[in-house]
Simulated assay, not measured.
Amino acid sequence: MGAIGASSAWLIAALLLGIAELAVPGVFLVFLAIAAAATGFAVFALPDLPVTAQLGSFAAWSVVTVLIGKRWYVDYPVEGGDPMLNDRAARLVGEIVTVETAIIAGHGRVVVGDGGWPARGADAAVGTRMRVVAVEGGTVVVEPLEA
C-alpha cells in the first residue's frame, strides 16, 4: 500500500471512529479518532514510514490525546441536570410524607410515594403530614410541617 493509501486508511479510520463516537457517545473514541488523524497526517508527510512506526505513532498519539482529554474533564467537568438522579435517599429530603403508623417515642412509619418507610422524629398521629429532613440508614427523619 502506498503512502497515499496508508494515509487515507488512517484518515478513514479517524472518520469512522468519529462517527462511532457520535453514534454511541462515551467521550473516548474521539481521542482515538484524533490519534488516527494525526497518524494519517504523519504518514502523508513521511511516505516511507514503516507500519510499525505508524502503529507506534497511533499508540503514542492515543496516550497523548486521552491524557489531554482526561485533564480537560478534570478542569472543566460536565455537570448533569440532576446530581441526585441515582441517590433515591437524597431525593427524599424535602418531600412531604404522611404518617402511616403513629410516631411514638420518636419511631413510626411514613408513606413515601407508594411504599412505607421507617421514620424517626417528633411524635405524630396517623395521617399527619410531615417533611423529610434527612435519610439515615434506611430510616427517614421527619419533622412537622410549619403551620
Rank of each mutant, 00 (worst) to 15 (best):
A3N: 07
I4A: 14
I4T: 15
I4N: 11
S8P: 03
S8W: 14
A9D: 02
A9N: 03
A9I: 12
I12Y: 05
I12M: 08
A13M: 12
A13R: 03
L16E: 04
L16N: 02
L17N: 00
G18P: 07
A20M: 13
E21W: 00
L22V: 09
P25W: 02
V27S: 11
V27W: 05
F28H: 09
L29H: 07
L29A: 12
V30F: 04
F31H: 08
L32Y: 11
L32P: 08
A33I: 11
I34F: 03
A35N: 06
A36D: 01
A38N: 06
F41C: 15
F44N: 05
F44I: 06
L46P: 01
P47E: 07
D48M: 04
P50D: 10
L55Y: 04
L55R: 00
L55T: 03
G56H: 06
S57V: 03
F58G: 01
A59Q: 02
A60Q: 07
S62E: 00
S62A: 04
S62Y: 01
S62V: 00
S62F: 01
V63I: 14
V64N: 07
V64H: 09
V64R: 09
T65P: 08
T65H: 10
V66Q: 02
I68Y: 10
I68M: 15
K70R: 15
W72F: 14
W72D: 00
Y73S: 09
V74H: 14
V74I: 13
D75N: 13
Y76I: 01
P77K: 10
V78I: 15
E79H: 15
E79N: 14
D82L: 11
L85R: 13
A89G: 10
A90G: 15
R91I: 05
R91L: 13
E95I: 02
E95H: 15
I96N: 12
V97H: 09
T98M: 12
V99N: 02
V99G: 01
E100S: 14
T101E: 07
I103H: 06
I104Q: 15
G106N: 04
G106F: 04
H107M: 10
G108I: 02
G108R: 03
G108P: 03
G108E: 02
V110Q: 06
V110E: 04
V110T: 06
V112K: 03
G113Q: 11
D114N: 15
P118A: 10
A119R: 06
A119M: 07
R120P: 00
R120M: 07
D123V: 04
A124L: 13
A124D: 09
A124Q: 09
A125D: 13
V126M: 08
G127D: 07
T128N: 05
R129N: 13
R131E: 11
V133K: 12
G137R: 13
T139E: 12
V141L: 13
V141F: 11
V142K: 03
P144N: 02
L145G: 05
E146P: 10
